[in-house]
Design a protein around this nucleic acid. Structure first.
Ligand code: FES
Ligand code: FES
Lengths: 132, 132
DNA sequence: CAAAATGATACTTTTATAGTATCATTCATA
DNA sequence: TATGAATGATACTATAAAAGTATCATTTTG
């Protein structure tokens, strides 16, 4: 079971790499060379990071991407939300319909609790904290 | 993101249902009627529960399945292991090869910690505890 | 022996993840 | 001002995992 998918993982690596030269504009090609991520996939991820305001983008010749936020302001949970959708462990699987037991269900309550714990942990993990 | 897949979930329902008449031998058909699970899928799940020693199976006419363990001895984590494989959140995604950073990686360490917490919680959840 | 059950196992469908391709737009600069 | 080097937008394809189906063999009871 994966808590973190590949695109989130790549995003982490990209950002952690970029912060080493925080004022440099990186092209997709630059990053491909360093990070071993396939060019078109990397491109997609960069575009998404841009749309989500984490990177600044410059079009045209000499363009590329620039880190927009401090690495200490970017949290793992943000990236997970961006690439994996809202984090939730406790959806009932009962035949897709909303479950009749949904309020009383003990299992759901326990899952909610775990979900709460994970969220609180994930909230605290900034990319900065992964590098220190 | 799902912590619990459909087959595990169905297994929980099956066992929680069977415990209401702990000495009754249930056929697959009996359970289909009550549990709204497609017949062949239910059958597969029952076969797996049997192989894993949670149900006793009787072949032939008048056969069926009988709960073999007390519901208080069956833990959610057991079912997850059976249907979902060994629980692990913290595998590195780095290009499938074992990752060079695997020992020093901070992210992995944090995931390991969360994994540990989840395991400890899951270990404590018996099916019995979901019913009380 | 026939009917009614499970055993074993292989197959198919659906969904999610991972990855690719392509044309449009922008910008620097020769 | 045309060209090439970059991103924007978006649609597509491939792979893997989950969910579900099908089928023939075996066992048991009546
Ligand atoms: S069975 Fe539906 S929420 Fe638990
Ligand atoms: S990058 Fe491989 S274990 Fe973290």
């Amino acid at each position: 079971m994966k808590l973190i998918t590949r695109d989130t993982d790549y995003a982490i690596r990209i950002l952690c790499f970029m912060v080493e030269e925080p004022n440099k504009i990186f092209t997709t090609k630059d990053l491909v060379k360093k990070l071993n991520i396939p060019y078109p996939f990397l491109r997609k991820i960069l575009q998404i990071l841009h749309k989500n305001n984490i990177l600044e983008a410059f079009k045209g010749k000499r363009g590329g991407f620039l880190l927009k936020k401090s690495i200490d302001e970017i949290y793992l949970l943000d990236l997970m939300n961006i690439f994996q959708g809202k984090f939730s462990l406790s959806q009932c699987l009962f035949k897709k319909k909303p479950c009749p037991r949904i309020d009383s269900c003990k299992l759901r309550k326990k899952l909610k609790k775990m979900e709460g714990y994970l969220l609180s942990e994930l909230k605290r993990i900034s990319l900065g904290s992964l590098l220190k």
